[in-house]
């Protein structure tokens, strides 16, 4: 669009000079590739999982919304159920060092064990690079990638934003629905929803 500018006064409001920070991954397009190390020191690249359905679960065990789903056993049930069907479930933590949710590898493994969590791997993204790449805003924030590497779901875990475990039973679980659809080779019925949770605790240096 071309138009003559007689006077241009540009007043910027809004702080963070993070040009692409929260733009993030786009549903319907290729999920951005990344490489991160897990809590056992093993490296994982998303591209290596082509041919599999992948879940990215942004996590922070200190956040009351994450505690809602882990405390009720809801997240663990999804992890076990779907990894049992060949889904690759990657928990991702983008807390900066010193921020809530940041843990050493040993602490992570102890927490996973204590909670009976069963992700395929728990990836450490302390620099926040992958979080920003995906536009991860909350914990939890859920993404589902199909076997062709296309992002088919991005958003909340379900449709009842709250910290109350009692809300889980009656909620529509968008992740389960997206995974069921993808595993059946169908289009995902709800591809975008509002993610709810605590803010991802990116390091301030970002």
């Amino acid at each position: 669009m071309k138009f003559a500018l007689f006077a241009v006064a540009v007043v910027l409001f809004g702080g963070a000079a993070l040009a692409s920070a929260q733009e993030g991954a786009v549903v319907g397009k290729a999920a951005p590739d990344f490489t991160l190390t897990d809590s056992n020191g093993k490296s994982h690249s998303l591209s290596a999982y082509k041919g599999k359905t992948v879940v990215l679960e942004w996590v922070n065990f200190g956040c009351p919304f994450v505690r809602k789903h882990y405390g009720a056993g809801n997240m663990q049930k999804l992890q076990k159920g779907y990894t049992g069907k060949g889904v690759v479930w990657l928990s991702v933590n983008s807390s900066g060092e010193g921020k809530e949710g940041f843990h050493t590898a040993a602490e992570i493994n102890a927490l996973l064990s204590e909670k009976g969590a069963a992700p395929s791997a728990y990836l450490v993204d302390a620099s926040g690079k992958v979080g920003h790449l995906y536009g991860a805003r909350t914990t939890p924030h859920m993404f589902v990638i199909d076997p062709q590497g296309t992002l088919v779901y991005a958003g909340g875990i379900d449709d009842k934003p709250s910290t109350d475990q009692a809300d889980i039973a009656g909620a529509t679980n968008y992740v389960a629905a997206a995974l069921d659809d993808t595993l059946a080779g169908k289009a995902v019925r709800t591809s975008v929803s509002k993610p709810y949770g605590c803010s991802v605790k990116y390091s301030s240096a970002e």
Partner: peptide, 10 residues
């Protein structure tokens, strides 16, 4: 989180 820029044109 994106900055909101005001400008005045034609």
């Amino acid at each position: 989180a994106a900055p909101q820029a005001a400008d005045t044109g034609a």
